[in-house]
Simulated scan of single mutants.
Amino acid sequence: MNGWDREYDISMGEYIELFDKSMRKEQESNIEFLEDNLSKMFDRKAVVCNSGTDALFFSLLSLKIGKGDEVLTTNFSWISTASVISMTGATPVFCDIDILSYHMSLDSIKKMYSPKVKAIIYPHLFGNMSDTSKIKEFCQEKNIYFIEDACQSIGSSYNKVLAGSIGDISTLSFNANKVVSGIAGGGAILTDGDTEIFKRLRKHGEGKHLGYNSKMLLFNAEVINYRLNKLSDYIKRRQLAAKYYDEQLSEYVTIQHNPDNLNHNYHKYVVRFQNKEVRDRVKAKIGQIHYSKPISENAMYDAIDHRKDDYIVSKIVSDTILSLPISPYITEKEQDKVINTILLLI
């Protein structure tokens, strides 16, 4: 449940106006208006592209990371967080996670570091954020880049610091399931440095080096920009839905308890059950699993070079986690159906 169909019903006139305005223009005309809006939001330079995956991939390429290098990342996330590393020729190094936040464990990061490590890709999972100050200190100490995967956390903040503003390079995604989405996906790169390399990479390298077809078309940019201006309302609605789940379920399942200094966008509302059997029984009726296995357990890694820490926590979480339906437009009646199903099956 993403809720975009319901928003269209509510705001149909505005969407038709956007469509009409866009169709009277060249679809490959500039989309700087969206980049300008993102730049104002994050106080950084912004370059948009075709997807959050491309944004991560281009981030690594811009840092000249490739064969012979290693990149630290989590063993519990969407697979592109790690696959982009292998796409450059570098070796992914999988770290375990913290049992409460589901974010990368500093102890595992330190354990898996080697002199070949050139960067870390750190995702804020499900829209949640944690204190990354010690991880950033470690990166500075070891002279490695901190790439912030903020693809799931647009609008979230920790100690009033926005996700997307803390990485040497940060990335966003506008995939259909995100808090702000385009009609055809999309991504963005945020940096305080030079952006020309990203603009060339998204347009076949402009003949100067190898590049890719990763442009964003005008109508998609218009939809993202329109929704970006409604982000605070989306988050408030998601937070209200999450609070209702918390109130009704906290005695029965493991929920994430968020500190007061966290502004969570609730891209996903996740709970954990006492074991895989119970989780799977509930999953047969409601919800989705994000994610069903540690990344390194995917069959592709049988043939791809990688290193990995023991992933006991990643495995526990993969076996017991479930994402419940949430959107800005979910109703209490719909939530009650989810809640009652869980209470009946646990």
Score class of each variant (00 low, 15 high):
residue 187 G to W: 07
residue 22 S to F: 10
residue 342 I to M: 05
residue 54 D to R: 05
residue 250 S to E: 13
residue 325 P to L: 06
residue 51 S to W: 03
residue 238 R to E: 07
residue 282 V to Y: 04
residue 13 G to C: 02
residue 266 Y to M: 02
residue 29 S to A: 11
residue 319 D to P: 10
residue 184 A to F: 01
residue 2 N to L: 03
residue 211 G to A: 09
residue 302 D to V: 05
residue 93 V to L: 13
residue 138 F to K: 06
residue 36 D to V: 01
residue 340 N to Y: 00
residue 110 K to T: 08
residue 99 I to M: 14
residue 249 L to H: 04
residue 164 G to L: 02
residue 205 G to K: 05
residue 33 F to H: 05
residue 147 I to M: 12
residue 323 S to K: 08
residue 88 T to C: 11
residue 162 L to M: 04
residue 94 F to E: 07
residue 90 A to D: 08
residue 26 E to V: 07
residue 312 I to D: 09
residue 144 I to P: 14
residue 19 F to G: 07
residue 199 K to S: 03
residue 24 R to W: 00
residue 198 F to S: 05
residue 312 I to P: 06
residue 184 A to S: 09
residue 208 K to W: 09
residue 37 N to C: 09
residue 243 K to G: 08
residue 81 T to A: 05
residue 81 T to H: 09
residue 321 I to L: 14
residue 8 Y to D: 10
residue 304 I to P: 14
residue 149 D to V: 00
residue 255 I to Q: 06
residue 308 K to L: 14
residue 305 D to E: 13
residue 300 M to F: 14
residue 116 K to Q: 12
residue 145 Y to E: 15
residue 132 T to N: 05
residue 26 E to R: 04
residue 63 L to A: 06
residue 311 Y to P: 03
residue 218 L to W: 12
residue 27 Q to P: 02
residue 83 S to C: 04
residue 133 S to Y: 09
residue 270 V to M: 11
residue 134 K to N: 07
residue 93 V to D: 09
residue 265 N to A: 10
residue 105 S to V: 08
residue 150 A to H: 00
residue 251 E to R: 09
residue 285 K to I: 02
residue 65 I to Q: 04
residue 264 H to Y: 15
residue 9 D to Y: 12
residue 249 L to R: 08
residue 293 K to R: 05
residue 291 Y to Q: 06
residue 208 K to I: 08
residue 215 K to E: 15
residue 265 N to C: 05
